[in-house]
Amino acid sequence: MSRITATFSRLKLQGRKALIPFFTAGDPDPASCVPLMHALVAGGADIIELGVPFSDPMADGPVIQRSSERALKHGVTLRDVIGWVAEFRSTNSDTPVVLMGYANPVESMGVDVFAGAAKAAGADGVVVVDYPLEEAERLVSTLDAAGLDTVFLLSPTTTDARLKQVAALGRGYLYYVSLKGVTGAATIDVVDVARRLAHIRSFTTLPVGVGFGIRDGETARAVAQVADAVVIGSRLVQEIEAAPAEAVPRARAFMSGIRAAMDTGAAAA
């Protein structure tokens, strides 16, 4: 059983939902990456989505674009990011790490080389934002062979035919992007998400995480009542951006607040 699947099984037994923070590796600076990962776990994160910076983050809003630019100014590479996963893994063997980014840095390294290096470092899953189903077959078979989960995105406009394919190709969990648009835009409609998740679950037994538009504890709690996982990206990156020197304690405090709100929800439910 993969570390991701094991994590969801354990949480299910506990009656809790997964909290999945996203931030861009190397933002605000390379030295903060591993401490930030540990701080997020201390604050209550169950899985970490670690962003691989790219020069042209087409699916991201301004907050994550800027975080990517800051990391690239420090010369952060995919190899660096994989190195930080290994460093994190040397003292944390429980928390899954999912690498999230765009196709070109992965293709530039070579999909095979990437899969081998990521697995050896202790990564657990991969999201390549601009590899939709149509282009993902080779990625999935390579990651499968290496023992890494390929996590797919779903959107409000994903058709039933595609849901069927995603259910077959997806590993670990599915990531439902709750809004049209880019990361960091607008806020979420929980009733609509609940309806959509019920439909998605008629196609798959994979856990479904929800992201895009989750800004505070209250929304996280509401989403946690209908989803298996809550993904928070832009809002966390804003914390890092607001005070780079205090990024680590602020990230931990922010995570704790969200965790507390989610668990209150679980107790009440």
Partner: peptide, 12 residues
């Protein structure tokens, strides 16, 4: 060639 975009653009 191909279609290398996020799932959010596929239906469009």
């Amino acid at each position: 060639g191909g279609v290398f975009v996020s799932e959010t653009l596929i239906s469009a």
